[in-house]
């Protein structure tokens, strides 16, 4: 009893003492608290770098494009079918570049969507666990192959083969660039689509098998419809990659901005034009210099739309089950 009251009084006396002089432990706590806040602030700055990068991209593209649109009317930019900013007789119509971009992307998707989808269905529904464990990492490896190497493949391997089939095919053409781009995107589409199919609950497959359906019927009529938004998201992200792809088209599709949707011709894409101009030595703030930012802005807007669309579609399927 006595010792307990003693302790209480001792405690209260030490509290009053600490009001005047901070105990070393408490002081350390304040110090610790301050250090914690500083660290949190530094980490936050690092996280903000992502926001900063996005804003910097938009700001730079808009700023330089604004300079461009001071000399070029927006109407001409979107309607003229000639793109010759570096010529004496300059025309500034982005449409030939957009046409080139869309044509190569369309060829790429015509290759990548069927093969990628079938590969995804096979991997998810038909392949054995072991086969999947082997193929999946290889697909991931394939995604990592640098695109310049695919450019070599398009120019010096695929084009000569295609020329044996169509002798009149020019050395630079959108067909071979598109096909190789498609091969490049297959693992990307297959991987995302397969993830979507794996996310379909097993009970749905079991229900289907219980009704006597075969694997093929289950895959096509049950799993694929259930995963359709994820598969579509894979396509959209594939389109976005094809549109933004640079080195394959810069090497193999040609550098001439031509308004055509014929894949057997050569034509420059938006990305190929940017590379072509950047390789030359253009003076800073000239119209040619500004034109690559205007082209870049169009490209950025296109890929941004596809990316947002892809994420919206993908989010939808995630919430379904």
């Amino acid at each position: 009893m006595m010792s307990a009251t003693n302790k209480v009084s001792k405690n209260s006396s030490s509290t009053t003492a600490s009001l005047t002089t901070v105990s070393p432990r408490l002081a350390k706590n304040v110090q610790r608290h301050f250090k914690e806040r500083v660290i949190e602030f530094i980490l936050m700055l690092a996280a903000l770098s992502a926001v900063f990068t996005t804003f910097a991209i938009v700001a730079i593209l808009l700023y330089e494009s604004l300079g461009f649109f001071k000399t070029v009317s927006i109407v001409e930019f979107f309607t003229s079918k000639e793109w010759t900013p570096l010529f004496e007789d300059a025309h500034y119509g982005i449409m030939p570049l957009v046409a080139g971009t869309l044509t190569t992307s369309a060829v790429a998707l015509a290759v990548a969507i069927p093969v990628g989808t079938i590969a995804a269905i096979y991997l998810s529904e038909f392949a054995s666990h072991r086969a999947r464990e082997i193929v999946k990492p290889i697909l991931e490896l394939l995604v990592g192959v640098p695109t310049i190497v695919f450019g070599y493949f398009a120019l010096l391997f695929v084009t000569p083969i295609l020329q044996k089939i169509y002798p009149e095919l020019p050395g630079f053409n959108m067909l071979s660039a598109g096909i190789v781009m498609g091969i490049m995107i297959i693992p990307y589409i297959a991987s995302i689509a397969e993830d979507a199919m794996r996310a379909v609950p097993m009970s749905m497959r079991e229900g289907s098998y219980a009704m006597g359906a075969t694997r093929f019927q289950t895959a096509i009529r049950v799993v694929t419809p259930a995963a359709v938004s994820g598969i579509v998201a894979a396509y959209i992200l594939g389109i976005s990659r094809a549109v933004g792809e640079t080195m394959v088209v810069a090497v193999a599709a040609g550098q001439q901005p031509t308004f055509t949707f014929d894949p057997t011709e050569g034509a420059a894409t938006i990305t190929a034009y940017i590379v072509q101009v950047a390789m030359g030595d253009l003076p800073h703030a000239s119209i040619g210099y500004q034109s690559i930012f205007a082209a870049g802005l169009v490209l950025f807007a296109m890929t941004l739309c596809f990316n947002i669309l892809g994420h919206i579609v993908r989010k939808k399927y995630r919430e379904q089950y």
Partner: peptide
Amino acid sequence: DLIEINVSNLAGVPSIIYGLLALGLFVYG
């Protein structure tokens, strides 16, 4: 949320756009 959206968006920006950013910001800016 803002940071997260930015990170996932940046992952989908074509690499050549980073080149334009660098040209405007690092090289000349």
